[in-house]
């Protein structure tokens, strides 16, 4: 079980690494938001899932630990709803505020 947890966490970290690289490298705000919105959600979910598994295993699946696991799922759920919403809100804000978006044509010209 611990092994699965470790794998999940490592995956999450990997995705997060991807996010950070994406945020750093992508050329304009909107594409960065893609990286942030997506990879961020998944990596969080994965890491927390891994932690939950590890914790269940660690505390030998007793009642209280399921409690904690549930709370971790609550986090996941909130992130699941919240993260896209937040991304959307930020995107919307950017487009309302008139952030220029990068396109190939403009770059060439």
């Amino acid at each position: 079980m611990t092994l699965i947890a470790i794998i999940l966490i490592i995956l999450g970290l990997f995705f997060f690494f991807g996010t950070s690289i994406g945020i750093l490298r992508l050329p304009d705000f909107y594409s960065r938001a893609h990286a942030a919105g997506k990879a961020d959600t998944l990596s969080t979910i994965l890491i927390i899932l891994g932690c939950a598994l590890y914790y269940l295993d660690y505390s030998h699946y007793d009642l209280a630990s399921f409690n904690v696991a549930f709370k971790l799922f609550v986090i996941i759920a909130f992130v699941f709803i919240g993260s896209p919403t937040a991304t959307h809100a930020i995107m919307d804000a950017a487009s309302s505020a008139g952030v220029e978006h990068w396109s190939k044509d403009k770059d060439k010209s």
Binding site: T19, I23, F29, R32, A33, A94
Partner: peptide, 11 residues
């Protein structure tokens, strides 16, 4: 832009 900051801070 500020929104870039907002995004990264959110992350």
């Amino acid at each position: 832009t500020v929104i870039d900051r907002l995004l990264s801070i959110n992350v």
